[in-house]
Amino acid sequence: MNFWPQVRGGGDGVTRRRFGRSTLGLLALTAVWPVSGLAGEAPVRIALTAAAVRDKLPFYDRWAAYLTKRLGRSVQFVQRRSYHDTLEMLRAGELDFAWVCAYSFLQAEDAGIADFVAAPVFHGEPYYRSLIIVSRDSPAETLADLQSKSFAFADPDSLSGYVVPRAMLRDSGHDPDHFFRLSFFTWDHGQAIEAVAEKVADGAAVDSYVWEYMAAMRPEIADRTKIIDRSGQFGFPPMVARRGIEPALRRKFTAALFAMTDDPEGRNLLQALMLDRFAAVPLSHYDSVREVLQRSLQAQLHVQSQNMPR
């Protein structure tokens, strides 16, 4: 038996991924307990995904405490390994808010699961990119140089960490399913950077925000990598709310995020996240994401139709 999967779109791949994720969901579930239990009401649960930086978890205790004060309700950050798990939990009402990838957000919105709350502003703009990184001493200069190499993706539902690099390959005339010798998921952008730094993967596609964050906060890892390619800009992974959540809670939460720049503690927290602020953006802001998404879906459908037995 060959252990190595051919990473490809389509039914077979999806089935395999679903099986993996449902098992992983249980393993990777690491809950951050509420800082203070306020009697009577259930805590407000916010999911963190690969879109957020997760190298210093105690930070989220501080942020939870801050939001608890602002909302008057206990707030709890929960870690979710994959976007898929996060969306499923939003659908099931297990979560109230989530910080998800733009791609997941559109999937959730289309599916009627979640609504936009706020977009983080990074380096003055609510945008980010997909970066193609390689080891610092790698001879590769473009994504095309990574043919037949090993490659790390963040999450199959990640825009910058999966969808965009595959689109980039397709745009340059390559078949993303057979381009790499081997690819794997790290379920986290930071881990993808580490996989390249450690030379387990010859290259990786990562969120530009996470890479910048790592370059500033964990230079011993990020400095061992270099950027050889970058995509166009996309709307920054937003904070979303479960559709059907109490409007008052949603308003309060949105206001609390927007108001973080108004007090020193909030500014301090934003600084730790290397974000300028949280802001409202029009949904058209994510049009470029939708465009990539549609192109990818078409490409997948095309592949599927070609593979269909006649």
């Binding site: 999967p5 993996g20 098992t23 794997f184 881990q191 450690e198 387990v200």
Partner: peptide, 10 residues
């Protein structure tokens, strides 16, 4: 390994 999940093995 069963899940082809390489990164945790490394």
């Amino acid at each position: 390994m069963l899940r082809n999940d390489i990164w945790p093995i490394y």
